[in-house]
Amino acid sequence: MISGDPLWWGVWWPWALLWLVTFGCVLVAGTVLLVEYTGRPRYRHRPVRVGYFLDRAPLGDLPTGPEDTPAEEITDILAALDAADELVHVDLRALELGVGRPGSRALGDRFGRDPRRRRLRDLDGFVVLKGSFRAVAQNADTVTLAAPFGDPPDPAQAPRVQVTCRLADLRTRLPEGVFAAYCLARPLDWKRRDRRLVLAPVALFQ
């Protein structure tokens, strides 16, 4: 190790200084990288608390472990979809979306497409969509829920997303009126006439 010898310092100080500066640069660069890495934008879902609805059919054979509660199962599914790079996180009220990992294919990048904006039906995988839902129709087998794009004064007149859930797959009673919830679904089709995006729902949860 470095001695306290003045002669040693007399001979080696320029190199010791260079060493120190180089090491400092590496250290600072590493710290900057670490800080940026830990502070990078991430769109990862927190654990699910309440699972209202769950239908695994649109997932195909996505492998997940057996879980006790719908909330645990949905958490597991979200993690699996994130890991498979098939999940886009959408905030319907803010009209924003993001992906959980850099360079994700889930955004459905194609030649000529503006990288700064997307329509839900452009996306290739699943979306986990945060919105203000309310039941708009119900029959003996199904309940249809809708959530508006953005935060319009009159949600009934605004463009919206719509999911139709089989009552048989409801795990608990839905809240009354308008309720904030997440919907894991696959976008299907934009119905131009009445301005609604039809989704194939996998789960509805909080």
Binding site: V32, L33, E36, Y37, R40, P41, R42, Y43, V90, L95, E96, L97, G98, V99, P102, G103, S104, L107, P115, R116, R117, R118, R119, L120, R121, F149, G150, P159, W190, R192, R193, R195, L197
Partner: peptide
């Protein structure tokens, strides 16, 4: 108005280590 609304892709969806600030 009958078109499906566009959503903004949030920054950071790209490669975080290639961001100019970094």
């Amino acid at each position: 108005d009958r078109e499906e609304p566009y959503l903004t892709v949030l920054p950071g969806a790209g490669r975080w280590f290639l961001r100019p600030r970094l």
